[in-house]
Computed example of a mutant assay.
Amino acid sequence: MAIPRQLPNAITVARIPLAVVSFILLLMGGPHGEADIALRWTAAIIFVVGISTDWVDGYLARRYEIVSEFGKLWDPIADKLLTGAGFVGLAILGEVPWWMVVVILVREWGITIHRLMIANEHVVAAAWMGKIKTVAQGVVLSWALLPFWLWIGVPSFSVVTLVLMWIVVILTIASGIDYVLAQIRGARKVAR
């Protein structure tokens, strides 16, 4: 079965409006404890659908050998918009610490800006550690966005969320270091 060559790219681009809609609904829903549960569920489900498409577009591109330079560049940007909006929304609502969100965003957008700056030379695809970090961010954000506190209780939910956020921060920093080291090794090879 043939699929349209641009389908993976269309799925990637679709994550951008999903990020915006999820973010707006999250803020409209309010923080846990006083949240409009319907809006919170809707924001969370839109996020989960959006982050799930990251796997779908990558699978389709590899499976049907239609990996494109556009996809290599825009897939991580769409991921960062979606996850960044989720982290910022949770920080605005006071559900995760701002300093953790800032660390995550500095790493994410620093590397994205670097990728854009060198895009004319070559496109840097995500490394395995970056993919693990993205999966961890998606899982933790799904946990934090879905209103599980209704069944678990806010204090227990908040403790689990904080522990998960620490894991994400550590993975985010480690994958950032891995990216920088890979770029240094690559630059040395080119210089030889």
Rank of each mutant, 00 (worst) to 15 (best):
A61M: 00
R62C: 01
R62M: 04
R63Q: 07
R63W: 00
Y64L: 06
Y64R: 04
E65I: 00
I66Y: 00
V67R: 15
V67D: 01
G71V: 09
G71P: 14
K72N: 02
L73G: 09
W74A: 13
W74E: 04
W74C: 08
P76W: 10
P76T: 14
D79S: 10
D79H: 00
D79Q: 04
G84A: 02
A85K: 07
G86W: 00
G86K: 00
F87V: 06
A91V: 10
I92Q: 05
I92H: 02
L93W: 07
L93G: 08
G94N: 05
E95A: 08
P97D: 09
M100K: 14
M100H: 14
L105N: 10
V106A: 14
E108W: 03
W109N: 01
W109C: 00
G110Y: 13
G110C: 09
I111W: 01
I111R: 06
T112D: 01
T112H: 02
I113R: 08
H114D: 05
M117A: 05
I118A: 04
A119E: 08
N120I: 00
H122K: 13
V123Q: 09
V123W: 01
V123Y: 02
V123M: 05
V124W: 01
A125Y: 12
A126S: 15
A126C: 12
A126I: 12
A127R: 15
M129Y: 03
I132K: 01
T134P: 00
T134E: 12
T134L: 08
V135T: 14
V135E: 14
A136Q: 12
A136Y: 04
Q137S: 15
G138I: 08
V139T: 08
V140Q: 09
S142I: 02
S142Q: 02
W143L: 03
W143S: 00
L146R: 07
L146A: 14
L150Y: 13
L150W: 12
I152T: 11
G153R: 04
V154T: 13
V154E: 15
V154H: 15
P155R: 15
P155M: 10
F157T: 08
F157S: 13
F157C: 04
F157E: 07
